[in-house]
Amino acid sequence: MKALIAIGMVMMAFCAFPLSVFAQDNMPPAPYAYRQLDDPQQERKARELMETLRCLTCQSQSIADSDAPMAGDMRHQVRTRIAAGQEPAQIRQWLMDRYGDYISYTPRVNSVTWPLFAIPAIVLLLAGLAVWRRIGRRQNYKGDE
């Protein structure tokens, strides 16, 4: 039991460092994993898209911020597809068809996510109301009663 705890503790200590540990594959990264597109306009599009796609083998990082090989392969996919003239929305859809909403950091309004958008709207309304009630109705305030 003690040994088990000990192993657990070492693993924990290890995990406390925020750099992911990757199984070592010896292949060089995909051509467009660490290379930008020559057209700055296209690279900008690709970069903006990559920043909003989740790396699936890492913990909570976008594929634009990860050294995981699979993130590199996804960057390669995004860049080559952008270079081939695809729109970012198309590529996002292509990935969502494979991995579901989870891969996209940009939630879309649908039957599952609508509260994410409805609640801030309600909060905005309530906030406006609170400010108006707290302040607005005392517009004619003349002094302490």
């Binding site: 995909a30 090989p69 699979m70 392969d73 996919q77």
Partner: peptide, 14 residues
């Protein structure tokens, strides 16, 4: 699959 192309295309994440 050197670039994980099929892996991504089939929706596998690891």
């Amino acid at each position: 699959d050197d670039l994980s192309e099929v892996q991504i295309d089939i929706g596998s994440s690891g």
